[in-house]
Design a protein around this nucleic acid. Structure first.
Ligand code: ZN
Ligand code: ZN
Length: 260
DNA sequence: AAAGTCGGACTGTCAAATTT
DNA sequence: AATTTGACAGTCCGACTTTA
């Protein structure tokens, strides 16, 4: 079972087109297991961020492209269409759902459980509604921003914010502040292709959305750096990923005929 | 020290399987 | 029809390497 289920997250949705910010309460007691902050992913990264394996955002151009002074080169990466007709075989019986919520025998779910975390996927109020717990929340912003203020894209055209006194400059990719996540451990069996295929004739299936330039950013996403003078975009070229055979469940052979 | 690489942990989607 | 399951197809963290 996903550890995140053990905690009730607070979710912030600051705008219609921004991914939900899910915040788990800070460790209530020193003896309880480490909490984990759920990472947010954009639906589609731009091609530049994708190749660099760096964080993108919903806006176009994205912050990173703006930083590297290549806003014109910020375009959505193409996505492959999901394959259909994949046989999955019989499902494992759903575990006694009457389990006590705090039960945790070494039993672990099969598969990558990816969806289950996103499962209790939130329909939450649009407003943060400052809760009592926010004060101790690691993701909460610096002092003065007690009121979760969003920043529009316009303000990022030339993001020049001086770093807080005492802090030194960090690498450019800290552009997006991110609270380090604490994993317990991992045990997933998936080893399929994890990197994008850069073939020119891919069939686009993701319908490019029109991102309004009004993209909102959380305060913690504020940059501490001026737009760099660097004019080339860092790119690395991954080798063409070898396509692995997709998983296809083979039903055990029937004696003679297979209806339907 | 900052920028570039990249393995792989992690997230999110959505069709198949199952239940209601 | 509604719900659950779980493989696929992605994102991007964070450790490492390279560059200035
Ligand atoms: Zn991007
Ligand atoms: Zn971009």
């Amino acid at each position: 079972m996903a550890d995140s289920e053990l905690l009730s997250p607070t979710v912030f949705i600051s705008s219609a087109n921004s991914a939900p910010l899910i915040v788990y309460p800070i460790n209530p007691s020193p003896s309880s297991p480490p909490v984990r902050v759920k990472r947010r992913q954009v639906k589609v990264a731009c091609t530049n961020c994708q190749r660099a394996c760096k964080k993108c955002d919903e806006a176009r151009p994205c912050l990173r492209c703006v930083k590297y002074s290549v806003p014109h080169a910020c375009v959505d990466a193409k996505r492959k269409a999901r394959r259909k007709g994949i046989k999955r075989g019989p499902y494992k019986k759903h575990k006694e759902k009457n389990r006590s919520m705090n039960e945790e025998s070494g039993e672990s779910p099969t598969g990558d459980t990816g969806g289950s975390v996103a499962e209790h996927e939130l329909h939450i109020p649009d407003r943060p509604a400052p809760s009592t717990s926010t004060a101790s929340n690691p993701l909460e912003l610096p002092a003065e921003s007690g009121h979760h203020q969003a920043t529009t894209y316009e303000q990022f055209e030339h993001p020049v914010v001086s770093p807080p006194s005492g802090t030194h400059q960090k690498p450019i990719d800290d552009f997006y502040a991110y609270s380090p996540q604490v994993h317990h451990h991992h045990q997933y069996g998936y080893h399929g292709p994890v990197h994008p295929v850069y073939s020119p004739q891919q069939t686009p299936y993701y319908q490019p959305q029109v991102y309004q330039l009004e993209a909102v950013y959380e305060p913690h996403q504020l940059a501490y750096y001026p737009v760099p003078t660097q004019s080339h975009y860092p790119v690395h070229h991954r080798p063409e990923p070898h396509m692995t055979q997709p998983y296809m469940y083979q039903y055990p052979p029937r004696s003679a005929q297979e209806p339907s």
